Amino acid sequence: MTATTAAGPTVKTAPKPKLKTSAMIASFADPGQKTTPAPFGHALVKAAQENEKIVGLTADLGKYTDMHIFAKAFPERFFQMGMAEQLLFGAAAGMAQTGVVPFASTYSVFAARRAYDFLCLDAAEPNLNVNIVGGLPGLTTGYGPSHQATEDMAIFRGMPNLTIVDPCDSVDIEQAVPQLAASEGPTYLRLLRGNVPTVLDEYDYTFELGKAKVLRGGNDVVFVSSGLMTMRALQAAKELAAHNVDVAVVHTPTIKPFDAETVLGEINTDRLVVTLENHTVVGGLFETVAAAAARAGVAKRILPVALPDEFLHAGALPTLHERYGLSVDRIVAAVLGAL
C-alpha cells in the first residue's frame, strides 16, 4: 500500500493481515494429526464411478459439505437447488422414487429443523433411498446456535425407517458411503468435512452399517462412543493408562438401528460405563444406551460425556470443547472423579 504525505514523498506500508478466528473453521483435528482431505466428496465420486444411479444435490453449500468434488467429477449428475432445503429433499425423494440414488447435502441444522416434514413424509414414510448428508453436526463450528446442530440425532431418532450414522473419522466416512448407497430406506450421515482426522486405520477396523466395534479392551472402564468422540475416547484411554486406569473403547457409528447386542455385552460387567457423544445429553447416544440397558434388564450406572441441554456459546472450537466437556482433559477428569 502506498500513501502520499503532506511533505510529498510516498511511504510504503505493509497491508494489514486479514483477521481470522477458529470460530470460522469447522475443524477439530489436533495440530500435526494425520488427516484426509474431503473424504466424503472423494468417496462419493468413487461410489458414483461404480454406480451410475448415484447423483448429488446441495442447497447452496457444495463447497462447505465437500459436495463440490462430486460436482466437478460429475457435473451432469449434480443439482444445485439453492437455499431451499425443503425443495432439496423433496426433489431428492422424487429422484429416489424413479430409482435414482440421491445424496443431498446441507448443514445438519437446516436438515433437522427446516426440512423435517419433507424428509419424514416424502422420504421416510415411503422408505426411499434418500441419503441426507448433514454438515456441522454437534459442536463442530463456533458459529453458535444458528449453526450448531446439537440436537439433530434427538430430532431424527424418532423418524421411522431412518438410519443414522455418526462417523468417527475419514475411514468411517469412506467405507460408509457405498454402504449407504446400497442400503434400503433413507439415511442421515453426520458429515465431517475438510481435513478429517484419520484414526481408525490403526485399530484393524472395518465399518459395517448397523454394527458397533470394540476397538480396544480394558478392565476398569468401558467407553461407548460415536462420532468424533471416539477419537477423543481413544486419546483419553491412553491418558488414563498413566493413572493405572485400563479403558476399553466401543465405537458405535450407527446410532439407529443400534447394535444393542454388542454394546450390552460390553457394559454388562462391573466396569464403569461412560458414553461419549458430540450431541446434547438429551436424545442421543447416552439415552440410546440407557434405553437398551433398561429394556434388557441390565442395571448399570452410565456416566454421560455429552453437551448440556442448552444453547451453546460461539467461539473457538478448542475453547468450546473444553468448556462443554468434550476435550480429552475434561474426559479424563470426569472418569477419575467417578472412580
Rank of each mutant, 00 (worst) to 15 (best):
V199L: 04
P126G: 04
G134Q: 12
M159K: 05
A290N: 13
S27M: 12
A154P: 01
G265M: 04
V224L: 12
S225A: 15
C168Q: 03
Q80E: 15
F286D: 12
F79V: 02
V109F: 07
S225C: 14
F223P: 03
A111G: 13
N278V: 10
I173A: 03
T5P: 03
F89S: 03
P39H: 09
T252R: 04
D220C: 07
T269I: 10
K12P: 08
V282C: 02
M81G: 00
L285I: 13
F40W: 02
F28A: 07
V273F: 14
S225T: 10
A290K: 12
G283D: 10
P137M: 06
E202N: 15
G227P: 07
D246A: 13
F207P: 11
A91T: 09
V109T: 15
D329M: 02
A38M: 11
L272K: 13
L240Q: 04
S226F: 10
T319E: 14
F78E: 02
H251Y: 13
V305G: 03
A296M: 06
A260T: 07
E125G: 04
I173W: 03
S105T: 14
E310P: 06
P137K: 12
G56K: 01
F156C: 09
A306C: 08
T163W: 03
R271N: 09
G144R: 03
D169W: 12
P126M: 05
L209T: 14
M83F: 13
I255K: 11
E202A: 15
V11R: 09
P167T: 12
D117S: 09
M83D: 04
T58N: 13
A23E: 06
N127I: 04
G90I: 07
G283E: 07
L215F: 03
G158V: 03
D166T: 13
Q148D: 02
L272I: 14
P31V: 11
A26H: 15
V45H: 01
I25G: 00
D30S: 12
N161S: 09
A48R: 01
T21G: 15
P39C: 06
V263R: 11
Q80D: 08
T5Q: 11
P318F: 09
P304T: 07
H42T: 14
P15Y: 03
L339W: 01
D60G: 01
A91Y: 00
G337P: 01
P17A: 13
V45G: 11
A154M: 15
V199M: 08
V298K: 07
A71Y: 10
D329N: 11
P37F: 10
M24I: 00
A314E: 05
L88D: 10
L87K: 13
T10A: 11
V289M: 06
L317R: 06
I173M: 02
L317D: 00
G8Q: 12
A92F: 03
V196M: 05
N127H: 13
A104R: 00
Y205P: 09
A111Q: 10
L139Q: 09
M231Y: 14
G82S: 09
D152M: 11
D246C: 07
P257M: 06
Y324R: 02
E322N: 14
D166Y: 01
P17T: 13
R323G: 02
A333N: 07
A7M: 01
P197M: 11
D152W: 10
E208N: 14
